[in-house]
Amino acid sequence: TGYYDVLGVKPDASDNELKKAYRKMALKFHPDKNPDGAEQFKQISQAYEVLSDEKKRQIYDQ
């Protein structure tokens, strides 16, 4: 599964769309709200870390 799929956004998503999707998913799977969501929360955080950084995103998109 790709990072875009993890966040539920298209590859041409804007920074604002990425942030909005990340916040929505992070709230849904945060371990405090969803004890079984810890692994998914890590994936969401990693996806956002890469896609929100312009240089990392360019490398990922290659």
Score class of each variant (00 low, 15 high):
residue 1 T to I: 14
residue 1 T to N: 11
residue 2 G to M: 11
residue 2 G to H: 14
residue 3 Y to P: 05
residue 3 Y to C: 13
residue 4 Y to T: 01
residue 4 Y to C: 05
residue 4 Y to P: 03
residue 4 Y to A: 00
residue 5 D to V: 09
residue 5 D to F: 10
residue 5 D to T: 10
residue 6 V to M: 10
residue 6 V to L: 15
residue 6 V to C: 09
residue 7 L to I: 01
residue 7 L to H: 01
residue 7 L to V: 01
residue 7 L to Y: 00
residue 8 G to A: 06
residue 8 G to Y: 02
residue 8 G to R: 05
residue 9 V to K: 00
residue 10 K to I: 03
residue 10 K to M: 09
residue 11 P to Y: 08
residue 11 P to V: 07
residue 12 D to S: 10
residue 12 D to K: 04
residue 13 A to C: 13
residue 14 S to I: 03
residue 14 S to P: 05
residue 15 D to I: 15
residue 15 D to S: 14
residue 16 N to K: 13
residue 17 E to Y: 02
residue 18 L to E: 00
residue 18 L to N: 01
residue 19 K to W: 14
residue 20 K to D: 15
residue 23 R to P: 01
residue 23 R to C: 15
residue 23 R to S: 09
residue 24 K to G: 07
residue 25 M to R: 04
residue 26 A to D: 00
residue 27 L to T: 08
residue 27 L to P: 02
residue 27 L to Q: 12
residue 27 L to E: 13
residue 27 L to K: 12
residue 28 K to V: 08
residue 28 K to R: 09
residue 28 K to E: 10
residue 30 H to N: 09
residue 30 H to S: 11
residue 30 H to P: 03
residue 31 P to L: 07
residue 31 P to V: 06
residue 31 P to R: 06
residue 31 P to D: 08
residue 32 D to V: 07
residue 32 D to F: 08
residue 32 D to Q: 08
residue 33 K to H: 13
residue 34 N to M: 07
residue 35 P to K: 08
residue 35 P to F: 05
residue 36 D to R: 09
residue 36 D to I: 07
residue 36 D to A: 11
residue 37 G to T: 11
residue 37 G to I: 04
residue 37 G to D: 10
residue 38 A to E: 09
residue 38 A to C: 11
residue 39 E to L: 10
residue 39 E to Q: 09
residue 40 Q to G: 06
residue 40 Q to C: 15
residue 41 F to V: 01
residue 42 K to Q: 08
residue 42 K to E: 08
residue 42 K to A: 11
residue 42 K to T: 07
residue 43 Q to A: 13
residue 43 Q to D: 03
residue 43 Q to K: 14
residue 44 I to T: 02
residue 45 S to V: 15
residue 45 S to H: 12
residue 45 S to C: 14
residue 46 Q to V: 13
residue 46 Q to E: 13
residue 46 Q to C: 12
residue 46 Q to A: 09
residue 47 A to V: 06
residue 47 A to K: 02
residue 47 A to P: 01
residue 48 Y to D: 02
residue 49 E to G: 06
residue 50 V to Q: 03
residue 50 V to C: 08
residue 51 L to N: 03
residue 51 L to V: 05
residue 52 S to Y: 05
residue 53 D to G: 06
residue 54 E to V: 14
residue 54 E to L: 13
residue 55 K to G: 08
residue 56 K to H: 04
residue 56 K to A: 10
residue 57 R to I: 03
residue 57 R to T: 02
residue 58 Q to G: 07
residue 59 I to P: 03
residue 59 I to Y: 10
residue 59 I to M: 11
residue 59 I to Q: 13
residue 59 I to N: 09
residue 60 Y to T: 02
residue 60 Y to N: 05
residue 61 D to H: 05
residue 61 D to K: 04
residue 61 D to N: 06
residue 62 Q to Y: 07
residue 62 Q to C: 12
residue 62 Q to P: 04
residue 62 Q to I: 09
residue 62 Q to M: 12
